[in-house]
């Protein structure tokens, strides 16, 4: 039976791979600067829609980490995101008005861009509201991490998606473009994550955090997955299966140790709950282009209207990666 399952997984991988190639037709290049990509560059791939306010800080943050080139898919922005991105010298931009849902929430586009421009390179796949934190990120550029991963023969790097929220109602605060959103959303849940194993993909399934605590307390099974593998050394035939939670071939999902040790891992600070979120979730709920037809957004919109406070007395305020490591949310592993 396991052979049959392995065969089916392989078939699924090939199907997704071909699908990504087919979906390249969705994309129209606005600004293709991929010739600037140097062999050692680390690429960031991202899909977005109407994120103009967040973009300046987002791009600067990842430039500081040492990202060489940004590959961005703009899914029908109307707020000027496209024009802004087209002006950036290190961004290659594609645009599409095709359905986000039909491209499996942008994953097909990401798979295509990674295959087309990222073969043999490290690619970092994050959303505009996710900030990648890894051990020593305050003193070592991301290149140090990927060099070390290469030397250790590790092909992927796992993270916990850490939902950040403000103190006070999400609508109470306002965000000015260019500002570090973690200054506003600086709080997180330190220790309410539940983990189970997903044997089909050899991955872990992590749930919990403020969204489970506040929005999914009565249906915890539906709480969003928080395990992500955003940093991957892209090999031929790799595909992201569902967002960056799981990959195929599934060896890429083995970012954890099941014999007691800790592998090196990081966090994605997820600043979804910025002020724009409230309006945003109602908007997205009506668009129904998100996972499970935007059901998640529906829940957020309802609950946030009732009781907007995510903060509680036991929330932790973010300081730096060392704090996250002490709390047990990430680990240096054997990188010292």
């Amino acid at each position: 039976m396991s052979i049959l399952r392995a065969y089916r997984r392989g078939a699924r991988r090939r199907r997704l791979y071909l699908r990504a190639i087919r979906k390249r037709r969705d994309l129209t290049a606005v600004q293709n600067r991929t010739r600037q990509i140097r062999p050692n560059d680390i690429l960031l791939i991202c899909t977005l829609r109407n994120e103009l306010k967040r973009l300046p800080f987002f791009l600067d943050y990842y430039r500081d980490l040492g990202i060489g080139h940004f590959l961005i898919v703009d899914n029908g922005s109307t707020d000027g995101s496209r024009e802004y991105l087209a002006q950036q010298g290190d961004v290659s931009l594609w645009t599409t008005s095709e359905s986000y849902a039909k491209s499996r929430f942008g994953v097909d586009w990401v798979n295509w861009l990674a295959r087309r421009y990222g073969l043999g390179k490290w690619i970092l796949c994050v959303d505009v509201d996710e900030f990648f934190i890894y051990p020593f990120c305050d003193t070592r550029p991301i290149r140090a991490l990927t060099d070390w991963l290469d030397a250790s023969e590790i092909r992927s790097f796992g993270t916990l998606m850490l939902d950040m929220y403000p103190k006070g109602a999400a609508s109470d605060v306002s965000y000015t473009p260019g500002q570090d959103p973690v200054e506003i959303c600086s709080w997180f849940d330190a220790g309410n994550y539940t983990i189970s194993r997903n044997w089909e993909y050899a991955s872990l399934w992590v749930q919990g955090g403020p969204r489970a605590r506040k929005f999914f307390a009565d249906k915890p099974y539906e709480a969003p997955a928080l395990n992500k593998i955003p940093l991957v050394k892209w090999g031929r035939g790799n595909v992201f299966v569902s967002s960056t939670h799981t990959l195929l071939p599934r060896g890429l999902n083995l970012v954890f140790d099941d014999q007691g040790g800790e592998k090196a891992c990081g966090c994605l600070l997820h600043v979804k709950f910025l002020d724009a979120f409230l309006n945003r979730s109602e908007d997205e709920m009506h668009r129904a282009e998100h996972y499970k037809a935007g059901r998640e957004y529906r829940t957020y919109a309802e609950k946030l209207r009732e009781d907007p406070e995510l903060w509680c007395k036991w929330s932790e305020q973010y300081i730096n990666w060392r704090q996250l490591e002490i709390l047990g949310l990430m680990s240096k592993g054997n990188w010292a």
């Binding site: 140790d257 014999q259 040790g261 800790e262 047990g328 990430m330 054997n334 010292a336």
Partner: peptide
């Protein structure tokens, strides 16, 4: 420092379950 790193990688922090440490019951 490096001895600690090896210890962390091979034995980890007891009782901690996280994205990079999820020991099987027997380990």
């Amino acid at each position: 420092i490096f001895a600690k790193a090896i210890e962390r990688r091979t034995r980890g922090r007891a009782g901690l379950y996280m994205v990079s440490r999820f020991p099987r019951a027997e380990y």
